[in-house]
């Protein structure tokens, strides 16, 4: 939001390419489902249809539907854009910190990770001053702690800092 996309008329990936990629990806999911079903048996046994029976046909339908989607996607005009590169950069600005956050939660706990995520966002995307950033970055985890651990008695993952504080 603070970094406006590049100049108007900027380029981006083709919608056609992405849509064909998505169809292929889903088709792969269907193939994996069929493969996994085959290994547990798709036939008829003493207890009736085997475990793989239903998912096998589900997988088959995924593959067929995706093949149709893939063919239709290949007919999309090449000029159509999926999004501008500037927009993709915006999306990346959420995905990358979020991926780091998700990876960090088991190690440093959800409170510290959340505080850092909020503060990082405010500082680099929202361009807030340090005082405001630190204030909200510290206040939110405390608010979450009070709401979840004290009020609803739901334990959330903790890390070294909480151990140090004896929480």
């Amino acid at each position: 939001m603070s970094n406006p996309p590049d100049a108007p008329g900027s380029t981006g990936p083709r919608h056609r390419t992405i849509e064909m990629g998505v169809a292929l990806f889903i088709m792969a999911l269907g193939a994996i489902t069929m493969f996994g079903s085959l290994s547990v048996g798709i036939g008829w046994a003493a207890e009736g249809p085997q475990s793989g029976f239903f998912p096998f046909y589900v997988g088959l339908m995924i593959v067929i539907a995706s093949a149709i989607n893939f063919l239709r996607a290949s007919g999309i005009a090449r000029g159509r854009q999926f999004a501008e590169w500037g927009q993709i950069a915006q999306v990346r600005k959420v995905v990358i910190p979020m991926a780091i956050y998700v990876a960090a939660v088991p190690w440093i706990g959800i409170y510290v990770a959340s505080g850092l995520l909020i503060a990082g966002f405010m500082r680099w995307l929202g361009r807030y001053g340090w005082l405001m950033t630190v204030a909200i970055g510290v206040a939110m985890p405390i608010l979450i702690y009070v709401t979840f651990e004290t009020w609803f008695l739901v334990p959330l993952p903790k890390g070294p800092l909480e151990d140090l504080l004896g929480l």
Binding site: A23, I26, L29, G30, T33, G36, S37, V40, E47, G48, Q50, S51, G52, F54, P55, V58, G59, M61, I62, A65, S66, I68, N69, R72
Partner: peptide, 29 residues
Amino acid sequence: PPAKTVASMMVGFALAAVGTDTVTGQLRL
């Protein structure tokens, strides 16, 4: 488009099938 609805729906069914088979108790996928 119908093929997209079918694909999306069937992915849901496939995801639901992962884990323990509720009928036989067998693990799958």
